[in-house]
C-alpha cells in the first residue's frame, strides 16, 4: 500500500504551507481520483508521493518501507507536459530504455509505432510523446502510478485509448493508480474512489461503471 501520513510541505521556512496535514493511501490495483481547484497543492502532493520532493513533516511509504533514495522508485509520476519529462537530445528508444525497458506488446497496446523509436522528442507530437512517457513507467518495477493531468492535452479519442491501455496493464499487474485531474467526468469514469482536497475529507464515493 502506498501511504502518505500527516504530510506537511512548504518550499522554505518563511513561505506558507502548500500542503497541510494530508493523509492518503492507495491500495494495490486501486484507482483513486484526486481533485481540487488550482493552487491546492495537487501537483506538490503528487511530487511528494513520488519522491520528487521530501515532505517537511510526515512520511511517505510503500508497504511500510520509505521510498528508496537511489534505485528505481516503485512510485512513478507522469506529468502533463511530456516534452519537459524527456531528454531532448536522446532518441526515443534510449528514452524508453532509461528505466526498465517495456515490452514490445505494451508499446503496441499504447499505439506506439516502431518508426518513432529512432526519432527525437521534438519530432513527435505531444500525444505521441505522452505515450512514450507512459510506456517508460509501465514495467515490472513500478507498483504505483501517479497520473498528473496525464491526458489533459490529448483529444477525447486518444485519451480514451491511452486510459484503456493503462488500466488494462495496471489491473493485470495490481498497480495502484492516483489520477490527478480537473476533469470531473473523466475522474468519475476511471476511479474507484475520489478524494477532494478542497472538501478536506475523503468522500469515498464508490463509483461504478469503470471503463471496460
Amino acid at each position: 500500500m502506498l501511504t502518505g501520513e500527516g504530510l506537511w510541505f512548504r518550499y522554505a521556512p518563511q513561505l506558507p504551507w502548500v500542503i497541510q496535514a494530508q493523509t492518503l493511501a492507495v491500495e494495490p490495483g486501486e484507482v483513486v481520483g484526486l481533485m481540487a481547484p488550482s493552487g491546492f497543492g495537487k501537483t506538490t502532493l503528487a511530487k511528494l508521493l513520488a519522491g520528487y520532493l521530501a515532505p517537511t513533516k510526515g512520511r511517505v511509504s510503500v508497504d511500510s518501507q520509505p521510498l528508496p533514495r537511489r534505485r528505481y522508485c516503485p512510485v512513478q509520476l507522469v506529468f502533463q507536459n511530456p516534452e519537459l519529462a524527456v531528454n531532448p537530445r536522446w532518441r526515443i528508444d534510449q528514452i524508453l530504455r532509461e528505466g526498465h525497458p517495456p515490452q514490445m506488446h505494451q508499446l503496441d497496446a499504447l499505439g506506439i509505432h516502431s518508426g518513432w523509436l529512432t526519432r527525437y522528442p521534438h519530432e513527435l507530437s505531444g500525444g505521441e510523446l505522452q505515450r512514450i512517457a507512459i510506456a517508460r513507467t509501465l514495467n515490472s518495477q513500478t507498483r504505483y502510478l501517479i497520473a498528473d493531468e496525464m491526458t489533459a492535452m490529448l483529444d477525447a479519442n486518444t485519451q480514451a485509448l491511452i486510459w484503456q491501455a493503462v488500466l488494462d496493464y495496471t489491473r493485470a499487474h495490481q498497480i495502484g493508480v492516483l489520477v490527478v485531474s480537473h476533469d470531473w467526468p473523466l475522474v468519475r469514469r476511471l476511479c474507484d474512489r475520489i478524494l477532494d482536497l478542497a472538501a478536506d475529507q475523503d468522500h469515498c464515493t464508490l463509483v461504478s461503471g469503470v471503463a471496460e
Binding site: 499505439g111 509505432h113 477525447a156 480514451a160 485509448l161 467526468p185 469514469r189
Partner: peptide, 18 residues
C-alpha cells in the same frame, strides 16, 4: 461520432488506431 462517443461523460469507447 467516434470523438463524441469517446468522451468520458458519454461511452468512453475509443476507435482503435491512430
Amino acid at each position: 461520432q467516434a470523438l463524441w462517443r469517446s468522451l468520458p461523460q458519454n461511452d468512453f469507447v475509443p476507435v482503435p488506431g491512430t
